[in-house]
Design a protein around this nucleic acid. Sequence first.
DNA 1: GATGAATGAGCTTTCATTCAT
DNA 2: TATGAATGAAAGCTCATTCAT
Lengths: 188, 188, 188, 188
Amino acid sequence: MSDKRERILSAAETLIARCGFQGMSMHLVAQHAGVATGTIYRYFADKETLLRCVHEERMQEIGNRVTRGLDPGASCYDQFRTLWLNTIHCLLDSPDCLLYRVQYEASPLFSKEEDQELHDRYFKPVFEFFEQGLEEGLFRELPAEVLCGMTLENLLLLTQKHTKGRIDLHEGLYESLIDANWNAILKR
Amino acid sequence: MSDKRERILSAAETLIARCGFQGMSMHLVAQHAGVATGTIYRYFADKETLLRCVHEERMQEIGNRVTRGLDPGASCYDQFRTLWLNTIHCLLDSPDCLLYRVQYEASPLFSKEEDQELHDRYFKPVFEFFEQGLEEGLFRELPAEVLCGMTLENLLLLTQKHTKGRIDLHEGLYESLIDANWNAILKR
Amino acid sequence: MSDKRERILSAAETLIARCGFQGMSMHLVAQHAGVATGTIYRYFADKETLLRCVHEERMQEIGNRVTRGLDPGASCYDQFRTLWLNTIHCLLDSPDCLLYRVQYEASPLFSKEEDQELHDRYFKPVFEFFEQGLEEGLFRELPAEVLCGMTLENLLLLTQKHTKGRIDLHEGLYESLIDANWNAILKR
Amino acid sequence: MSDKRERILSAAETLIARCGFQGMSMHLVAQHAGVATGTIYRYFADKETLLRCVHEERMQEIGNRVTRGLDPGASCYDQFRTLWLNTIHCLLDSPDCLLYRVQYEASPLFSKEEDQELHDRYFKPVFEFFEQGLEEGLFRELPAEVLCGMTLENLLLLTQKHTKGRIDLHEGLYESLIDANWNAILKR
DNA sequence: GATGAATGAGCTTTCATTCAT
DNA sequence: TATGAATGAAAGCTCATTCAT
């Protein structure tokens, strides 16, 4: 039953976040998942493959959460709010995912091509939103990737600071932050 | 002679950048530094300590580069431009440093307290700048850490995208980016 | 149905020849035989037993081929020719079999007693031939095993050299080789 | 001190002979040699390299023993006797070496080219002897490799039978065996 | 101080064998 | 009977660390 596959993936994610990429030993993953070491290899060819699968699964999940409820017919600003709030909720809910992603992308496993493909697959609606705003002449003439980086991925840094305890990201700040990010990309 | 200490630190730095956090073995460091394996342990208690020292060195260097030429007497906007340009140059010059930092901060070595201390020590002028702007009522009423995150650390993401080849960060974009970041934090 | 037993034995044989003694995994055998892993254990107690059975099958087959067409009523020299030609044809036809046997006999599986028994069972006519020649006073007074070793098993070495490409064993050499081997054992 | 290298090689050889090629684990080798597992890897890159080194060392040793005291000025028959006696003594003295060699040559490690090179290096005088006999018109017109196989390597089989307890190779048989082998290759 | 050979715990991975279905 | 997912001992190998020189 694929229940085991899930448990292995989940155990791997947790351990990477907790012990770092190096600290994630297959033995530990097996223990946390409640299976024998050999069992992991029934589901994943090797450690690298397991790591890649964790990555892809998480990317998909994040993509889904960030674009949830996005209505292409709504006003540009409303769509922006939806994306922004989805993003911050997603990031605050699963801080492990941050630690994991950052390590994955810094590791030798990571390849530009694969990354591009995953983004295209799971974050397409996000980029389409920014492209649309550009076409309407609403946003600064900067690549959609840049606009996205300055307003949404940006939140990765803030939530990391929050997790580290250096800032306190409470709801009271959201409106000001949304406004700040919106003003950053608005054409003047 | 502390010449050896320097060579060890430098070798470690190079190896982390080249082979990743995991690829940096003490044996390799010794070889690159031209010393015996055991010699490293005269200068650093263990691998963890060596890694921490490399980290601190890097933080100091980056702090220096980012605040270089910052004139507290200049106009707020001019100071902002200086910080912004210093930051982007620093990040584009040493993309390895990004990969390194990200791995370090995600690793179990990293502690909030130590991190706070390093920031206080090496990035004080940066935070003082934002504090000053806040006092003058020029910036949005958000924590200095947040303002800094949205405008300078923000560039970490953009340069990472640049390195990955997903955007092209040429000088032609700088003015628009500075303007975007400046507008983000300006009180309205 | 014992059809499965046959398929398992055959798969094992093929795999040993192709991948070597070490490369033969039970899983692979099962796959090649088109049965489940566990099924093998219905027919053979364990890997060792399977290996022993493959060995015995091979010995029997070789025994059959070597003694094929041997006529106890024919002249001693004619019988010798028959054995010699059968042997070289058998060895050249299945060079894998050599590699297999050599590995088997060198392995801890191999026991003197078992080996003796197999020889008695499958190569009896060969030894009887040499015994008969001895009784007739035709051959040197050496143990039949020695006579056989010097003239027939001997060919194992030559065919191995042939397989390794160090000599070229073409039919043109056969008469001279038969003559050489015959002269070796002839009493003078 | 290279004392350890010797101990490791020797332990490996013994274990291969005793437990078979597969039974020789690096852990066991380390134990028998009285060193730590990691120590083996200071002297040999990996298991394969260790195995190759054992092979080469033994080939050299056997080459030396077989050609010991060979006098190119002596009569052809005397030289033959020297080679023959050297060979049988060498083979009977170190039966491990047989088990080892046979397994090595049957393994995937073995390459024709490497084998050829080792033979050229360590058994040159043996082949030169047979070549000389051929030039003098003394021997049958068969490749030197074949003549050597029929008379000397041939003894490998006999000593194996001896070790297995199927024949008893005592000195009383030597003269008859030498004569048999000599007659086999002599031109008539 | 400096060396680097030696250590051995710990890593990833394989595979003969079992057993619930 | 037959299955094949699951097991876990054991394999080859690495590397942070020590210590006799």
